[in-house]
Design a binder for these strands. Structure first.
Lengths: 153, 153
DNA sequence: ATAAGAACGAGACTTAGTCTTATCATGGCT
DNA sequence: AGCCATGATAAGACTAAGTCTCGTTCTTAT
């Protein structure tokens, strides 16, 4: 199962970075390991409080996410929803991007080789050493499109 | 000059939408018309206050930007800098995207036909009617890259 | 000129995210 | 085992972007 291997890799990288173990970080890792798509810091805080597994304070959530981002274990995703989302990054995993429904806020992943190619080529021609990219396409999901058309029910 | 034609078009569309003229909106239009790249709401507020041309309250800035966005006159740009940027949209103008320096916050525009092609093709294959896209590549500008390497001055 | 309604300003309010400080846990060391 | 240095955590004050409300002022059609 790839999620537990991600957790293992995370623990290993953290140890290599000279970090000690702690209950809060372990809880966050386990939550992220079991999620395939992007969560906000607030969602993480709430989920942990609700799961009765272990509550983690807001400051810890942000600190832990920062550490994980520095180690390349999670990635920030800007969905234009006024808050940052985070999701785990797999080593070999194909890079994926996101579709956001502006109606209901639904976020879903997609990936495309042509897009990656285009971006790689741009990165070489531009006056900026590009470190990462994250593409978000906005639109309406099937449900929300239907609702829009229902001005006659 | 294309900026004044954008202002004219804006006034025309607003009138067609049944809106009356007002000093605050005119001031915002003139500022945006003279800017080629994206500004934040706060930058707009500050610029207008500083320019002695005409101060515009925060609520008005946001209200006006919303109206302009609805009419397709401005576009939101998510740069991942914890605040939204807005820039004017030209009818025929080729679509442009942005490079953001994570070191100093510099934002600069770029455009690429291959990228547009890739996105158009994705839009057709995805379970979401894509309405808009805005791509932001992150990295380090030449200045900031140099600074990073200067751990020995 | 007047009235209807749009535009505006002031400031209270909300909330994502940051920062501070005190307390707690961990693991090395004697 | 007991102590101590250091990193991890909790609680909540704080910052700032963005929203909301409501009373006032300005536009424009008649």
């Amino acid at each position: 199962m790839s999620s537990s291997s991600w957790i293992d890799r995370a623990h290993a990288l953290l140890a290599a970075d000279g970090r000690k173990r702690g209950g809060a970080r372990t809880a966050v890792l386990e939550l992220l390991g079991g999620e395939s798509c992007a969560l906000t810091a607030v969602e993480i805080e709430d989920a942990l409080r609700a799961q009765s597994s272990r509550a983690v304070s807001r400051a810890s959530v942000y600190r832990i996410l920062d550490q994980l981002e520095c180690l390349g274990l999670v990635q920030r995703v800007e969905t234009g929803q006024a808050m940052v989302r985070y999701e785990r990054v797999h080593e070999h995993d194909e890079h994926h991007h996101h579709l956001v429904c502006d109606g209901c806020g639904l976020v879903m992943p997609f990936s495309d080789a042509g897009l990656e190619r285009a971006i790689r080529s741009i990165s070489e021609r531009v006056p900026l050493s590009v470190s990462e990219h994250e593409i978000v396409l906005h639109g309406a999901c099937p449900d929300c499109r239907d609702v829009e058309g229902e001005h006659h029910t």
